[in-house]
Design a protein around this nucleic acid. Structure first.
Length: 467
RNA sequence: GGCGGGUUGGCGGAGAGGUUACGCAGCGGAUUGCAAAUCCGUGUAGACCGGUUCGAUUCCGGUACCCGCCUCCA
């Protein structure tokens, strides 16, 4: 049995992963608030936990449940609705559609469950009522607040004490709070805002209770892994723990995993710095989803990841050389993630060391080039989620992007010209055509056995016109 | 101010108390009409100052710098 080791934020160390129930391994990851396109930083946890999902499915076949929510009730959504005059449901439906399209484009599997918060309001109200009944929450001025002092373990995940937090607090405290640390479980909605009837009047849930309620409904009071960005560690995850543990009296999540943040050219992505962009922006610029995925995996998930143009180019070069190898040496092969190499699995099982996983890919690539056997490379790429980007593996001669079909014609012509030049010793016409092809971003390879033309990075079909 | 993380060769980025990381770029070679692709070989590290140790880039302490969270911008 393969053993997985994962870094647990709770213990701050790598632990042997032992599922509560090996026949149903359960993972919850905090999903997006759906009011706008996902930016690149939003994609990092999706890719990270997609790799974990794939690894878990490999080790526990058919026994993994993965839930990732959509927060579709939120003041940012309300603000957008007020701004545009559009119904909230239109906005959230559209944004969810975008999210699916963008995350699919990065090769991510859909989770088992993708609950929408608005479909679990009843569960949230029930949980809040339980917290009140147990003395962990109180109602005041139409709000229900969680009483942080009633949960002595509060701060365990983020490693802070309640007193430290109060001392360092810079936020104005709402006057109705008993204690500055208390946070909202339920808040009142006026007629202009979305709201649901509750024992405390018409209102809407606080953000944190959503994940507690949905994870309980879908995965139970205790489950194996809870993931999300490290920015959620406090207060979101701390509050989830307080709510779930106090309401349910159970362990809640056993392993907490947090991915580090994303930088762009060394700086935090922000609108004010002008380096803010969405996944869709990159895709529209022609950066392939697989390249984005590869760049995400180049850095370990617990280190900050820097998105740079240079890395994207390096990733594209790598992937192109892998694809070329697959098409040359494994045409017709149907990749099977279940046959991933031990080296790849060892890397992933060691707290998702995706960088060493890519090193394993390199080793398989080199093996394929020297042995002519590329099946293992295909299988390894499949486990990492790279094999659904370009369809089946065709013989290399047929492996061309749609707009590049007539490279076949050019390739035949170049070969004929070269054959003639080899006898006449006049290479000028050959070089002219070759230069034009290179200028269009086509890789030109001539060997004694023939001529091959392959679209390279920066391939521009328009420049082939007239050749 | 409080809490946490980081600093590795031109660039990216790992592991390991002592033995080659690896990749990209560079350089040399094979190959090539010239190239490309591929293969082979190769140089360059461990922020700074101390400590532990036979031996530290790897453990401990301090300094500097960077970053994140504490503010429902992930």
């Amino acid at each position: 049995m393969t053993t997985i080791r994962l870094h647990n934020t709770l213990s701050r160390q790598k632990e042997l992963f032992e599922p509560l129930d090996p026949s149903n391994v359960r993972m919850y990851v905090c999903g997006p608030t759906v009011y706008d396109r996902a930016h690149l930083g939003n994609a990092r946890p999706v890719v990270v936990f997609d790799v974990l999902f794939r690894l878990l499915r490999h080790v526990y076949p058919g026994a993994v449940t993965y839930a990732r929510n959509f927060t579709d009730v939120d003041d940012k959504i309300n603000a957008k609705a007020a701004e545009t005059g559009r119904p909230i449901r239109d906005i959230t439906d559209e944004t969810i559609g975008w999210y699916h399209a963008d995350m699919d484009a990065l090769g991510n599997l859909r989770p088992t469950f993708e609950p929408r918060a608005t479909e679990y309001i009843g569960a949230m109200i029930a949980m809040i009522q339980t917290l009140i009944d147990k003395g962990h929450a109180y109602e005041v001025a139409g709000h229900v607040l969680f009483k942080v002092r009633s949960y002595p373990e509060y701060g365990r995940l983020s490693g802070r004490s309640v007193d430290d937090m109060i001392a360092g607090a810079r936020v104005e405290v709402a006057p109705y709070k008993d204690d500055p640390m208390d946070f909202v479980l339920w808040k009142p909605s006026d007629a202009s805002l979305p709201g649901w009837e509750s024992p405390w009047g018409r209102g809407r849930p606080g953000w944190h209770i959503e994940c507690s309620a949905m994870s309980f409904e879908l995965l139970g009071a205790s489950f194996d892994i809870h993931g999300g960005g490290i920015d959620l560690q406090f207060p979101h995850h701390e509050n989830e723990i307080a709510q779930s543990c106090c309401a349910l009296g159970a362990d809640f999540a056993r392993v907490w995993m947090h991915n580090e943040m994303l930088l762009v050219e060394g700086k935090k992505m922000s609108k004010s710095l002008g380096n803010f962009f969405t996944v869709r922006d990159l895709l529209d610029q022609g950066v392939p989803g697989e390249v984005i995925r590869y760049v995400m995996l180049m850095t370990h998930y617990r280190s900050p990841m820097d998105w740079t143009e240079r890395k994207a180019r390096e990733a594209e070069g790598k992937l192109l050389s892998y694809w070329r190898t697959l098409h040359r040496y494994a045409p017709g092969y149907v990749p099977d993630a279940k046959k991933a190499s031990g080296k790849l699995l060892d890397a992933l099982c060691d707290d998702l060391n995706t960088h060493l996983a890519l090193v394993a890919l390199d080793a398989e690539h080199k093996f394929a080039e020297t042995s002519g056997q590329a099946e293992q490379l295909a299988d390894d790429m499949a486990l990492l989620g790279f094999m659904n980007f370009r369809g089946p593996i065709e013989p290399e001669a047929e492996w061309l992007w749609g707009p590049a079909q007539h490279l076949n014609v050019l390739s035949a012509r170049l070969e004929a010209m070269r054959a003639e030049a080899l006898t006449t010793k006049d290479f000028a016409p050959v070089d002219t055509l070759k230069s034009a092809l290179l200028a269009a971003g086509v890789e030109v390879r001539m060997s004694k056995t023939g001529v091959e033309l392959v679209p390279g990075p920066g391939f521009d079909p328009a420049k082939l016109e007239g050749l």
